[in-house]
Design a binder for these strands. Sequence first.
DNA 1: TCTGGGGTCCTAGGACCC
DNA 2: TCTGGGGTCCTAGGACCC
Length: 435
Amino acid sequence: MSQSASSTLFALVDVNNFYVSCERVFNPGLENRPVVVLSNNDGCAVARSNEVKALGVKMGAPWFQLKELADRHGIVALSSNYALYADMSSRVVSLLRDYYSPHIEVYSIDESFLGLNDLKPLWPDFTAMGQSMRQRIRQWTGLPVCVGIGATKTLAKLANHIAKKNPRFNGVCDLSSTTQAETDRLFDAIDAGEVWGVGRRIRAHLQAAGIRTVKDLRDTPPSWLRSRFGVVMERTGNELQGLSCLALEEVSPPRKQIISSRSFGQPVHALSDLSEVLAGHASHAAEKLRSQNGVCHAIHVFIHTNPYQKQDRQYSNSIVIPLPNASADTRLLVRAALFGLKKIYRPGYAYKKTGVMLMDIGEAQTAQGSLLLEHGSGKRAEGLMKAMDALNLRFGRNTVSVFSSSAPKPWAMRREAMSPCYTTRWAEVPVAYSR
DNA sequence: TCTGGGGTCCTAGGACCC
DNA sequence: TCTGGGGTCCTAGGACCC
């Protein structure tokens, strides 16, 4: 457990109903109307306006089940536009970083933690800071946010929840400045399931043990939580008591796995159709892998029919294709994925979803002052430049070595039976590259 | 044939998050 | 129940090693 010796203070800034709020910025006519944003294929509601939440619509509710309710209440349903949301998100992050704290952890597309430890001299109180954030972000992006402040990340999350639910807080709750009696009153009114890290299962177990509110949970000995649920819940208990166990992660660690998958709107039957989609997934995943300068040692391919259509014949399968030479090469990964798909494909089924997962991710080699970058067709030089930029490198009077590998088909080999890869350098091109 | 103590690696499954 | 697409961490158990 990592815990800091000095007292800590965190803020959690969270955009209200993020996707819906983004849509409203560009279509003010949606203001004060019930709005949902739907997932891929318009399958389920992944964002709901307050008006829709008030109608009892749950997160992830299937849209087809809401049709009647939607007709009755005039719910506006929008398909999602992730490019827009990502752009809006980065605007909010920039404002927070530039105007409030350089110590920022971008936790998700609509949430950021800020480290406030160094900021005490700058603000009369942090509630004022929170209000300033709300005002500035609203003015410059059009988005509504709430701010929660606490001695630990878990408490900041909880404070944010309180700020959202209780109008009297006007969108900002600072749990580091509330009295013990006030805190107790607030915590006693919140279900333990609202705490960060308490999901459906653990909530049920807690209830059975008579632990119903956040106050109950906070007053439960962390040692008991550990014996009952493990180290993660013990940490949650400590954090609720104000002992900071989770540090601010200002630089996001590289992904350990990368998934690209999608459900089909219509069932897909033919191998050729699946291959086309899967090639796209592999190429997309490879691109994400290269963007973190990574290489992977294996690719996992999966496919399945619609598990909700119980009356249909079901089939699901997956396969892991080891790569003897770790790579982020698009063509290699696409070929491996298609090879795997052929292995697991069975004709006669209505396929609903397929995808790939890149596994065993490591860093691309940068030994001996050289940068090894395998890259898919037509983009080698471009990719190399990008990678060098990312590493803050530049060429002087150096050369670019172009090579081809004579490795046998990777999927023909098992991990424990790897044969050597013979590399032929077939051209050295002198380049000068500076930025 | 029975018996010790310690370790690593891998996988599957379960829990959680947005 | 006509239903998203990403991720993380922890634990238990088995295979295998000295």
